[in-house]
Simulated scan of single mutants.
Amino acid sequence: MSDRLAALSEAGVSIWLDDLSRERIETGNLAELVESKHVVGVTTNPTIFASALAKGERYEPQVRELKANGADIDTAIFELTTTDVQRACDILRPVYDRTDGVDGRVSIEVEPGLAHDTDGTVELAQRLWERVDRPNLFIKIPATREGLPAIAATIARGISVNVTLIFSLERYRDVMDAYLYGLEQAAAEGRDLSTIASVASFFVSRVDSEVDGRLPEDSPLRGKAAIANARLAHEAFVQVFSSERARALLDQGAKPQRPLWASTGVKDPAYPDTLYVQELVVADSVNTMPEKTLLAFADHGEVTGDTVTGRYDEARDVLADLEKQGISYDEVVDQLEVEGLQKFDASWAELVETVQAELDKA
Rank of each mutant, 00 (worst) to 15 (best):
T293F: 04
L165I: 14
H38Q: 15
E57M: 09
L249Y: 02
T288P: 08
F344K: 06
D174P: 05
D334C: 03
R157M: 11
M176H: 05
Y181I: 13
G305W: 09
I48K: 11
V238Q: 11
V308R: 10
G310Q: 08
I91W: 06
D284K: 13
S285I: 00
P149W: 06
Q86E: 15
A54E: 13
R64Y: 01
R58F: 02
P142I: 04
L193E: 02
L92P: 05
V34G: 02
T309H: 08
E35G: 13
S194T: 15
T195N: 07
V333Y: 08
S347M: 08
V352H: 09
E350C: 06
L319Q: 10
R231L: 12
D212G: 12
R157F: 00
D299N: 13
S14K: 14
A228F: 05
E146M: 05
L128C: 12
I155N: 01
N229T: 12
D90S: 13
T47V: 14
L169F: 06
A248P: 00
L137P: 08
P256T: 10
S9A: 12
R134F: 07
H116R: 11
N229E: 06
E350N: 12
L128T: 10
L92W: 01
Y172P: 04
G305K: 08
P256L: 00
V175K: 01
M289A: 02
T288K: 03
T164A: 07
R247C: 00
A233M: 14
E189P: 04
D97H: 03
I77S: 09
R87Q: 14
K67F: 09
A270M: 05
A248H: 04
L280I: 08
L322F: 09
R24I: 00
S14L: 02
G182W: 01
I77G: 08
A320Q: 14
S36F: 13
Y276M: 03
V106D: 01
S168E: 05
E10F: 00
L169K: 12
E123W: 06
P46Y: 11
Y172D: 04
A200N: 14
A320I: 11
R93L: 15
L215C: 07
E302I: 10
R171I: 13
R247D: 06
I73V: 14
I108C: 01
V13L: 04
K361I: 15
A320Y: 09
A349P: 06
S205P: 09
Y312W: 15
E130R: 15
Q185S: 08
E217S: 11
T164K: 02
L341I: 13
T43V: 07
V42R: 01
V282S: 14
G104K: 10
R316N: 02
Q335M: 08
P46H: 10
R98L: 13
A228I: 10
D74T: 12
E10D: 15
S160P: 15
N287M: 02
V42G: 01
G101H: 12
K292T: 13
K140G: 06
A296G: 09
S285C: 01
G28M: 09
V333Q: 11
R93I: 00
R316F: 02
E217R: 14
T195V: 11
S285K: 00
T118V: 08
F203C: 11
Q356I: 06
T144H: 07
I91A: 08
W129F: 14
